[in-house]
Design a protein around this nucleic acid. Structure first.
Lengths: 153, 153
DNA sequence: GTTGAAAATGCTCGACG
DNA sequence: CGTCGAGCATTTTCAAC
């Protein structure tokens, strides 16, 4: 995989800040003319450096103002179990992020809910319906201090 | 704050999937003509439902393929300490997310690093330079199962 | 909310340092 | 590799309905 030069990184920074920048404005911002700028953007997309573009939506406005971190361990750890459980987690719309981990717990998930009532409902109606959970541990988020949607170029 | 009707939600879903959709294509997709579609999008932006647009960048391509979850507790918990520590965390470029928590640990942060070497360097050069840490606990992410950048409309 | 047309913008491609 | 410039397509914008 090829290296990213300083110009590529400036393009990425600009598009991370505003994913809707037109090629014209982007070129101006990074100090290039439109043609090479457009070629670079297309190359970055095709190489998978840019995975896509998305609108950032406000959780609160969508009725799910609270965030809970839930760590989960399974009863068994055969391949089949891990795959099925992971897929089931990813399928739940309340689950915003889900990771398979090293260490004490098998999974860490970040869930959007509406208060403790929404949290309880999620546990009972969704998470605890999944088979194979040995133990889970929940932590409410009091405040979000930072939430970047990509690593900084 | 006003409610979101089904059309608003369809607009949000489309823009979450592709943040660069033109108003024309968006209108077509949600079954509206361009004018009311554009009015709705602008209203959603002004109400803060849409917080912005961003390009999604590949961590691996940027040289930070690994993710570590670090939980931190502080020695003291006065207001000043909490605020300063939170700001310091948010300022570190490796830190992708940072939350103030209830429960056993005060903070949870998600950090992008390059392998164990990058992780050690982050700890020694960045995190452990911050004053006031009593204890921390790190967990490597083996695999990302889901990573939504906004809650589902 | 719809339609349609004018105006502006941005994209794409050539030739050329 | 980069710039410049012009034709072409889209899109935005703003009427009237």
């Amino acid at each position: 995989m090829e290296e990213l030069d300083q110009t590529d990184r400036r393009i990425l920074r600009a598009l991370r800040r505003d994913g809707r920048l037109s090629n014209t404005k982007l070129a101006e911002e990074v100090g290039l003319s439109t043609t090479p700028c457009w070629n670079r953007v297309r190359a970055l997309e095709e190489r998978g450096v840019i995975e896509g573009y998305t609108a950032l939506l406000n959780q609160q406005a969508l009725g799910l103002p609270d965030t809970v971190i839930i760590e989960v361990t399974l009863e068994r750890h055969d391949d089949d179990m891990l795959v099925r459980f992971g897929e089931a987690l990813a399928g739940l719309p309340e689950v915003m992020e889900a990771y398979l981990l090293t260490g004490e717990y098998d999974y860490l998930i970040k869930v959007a809910v509406a208060g403790t009532a929404g949290y309880e409902e999620f546990l009972r109606r969704k998470l605890y319906k999944l088979p194979g959970i040995r133990h889970s541990r929940s932590t409410f988020v009091l405040r979000c201090l930072k939430r970047a949607h990509s690593v900084e170029p």
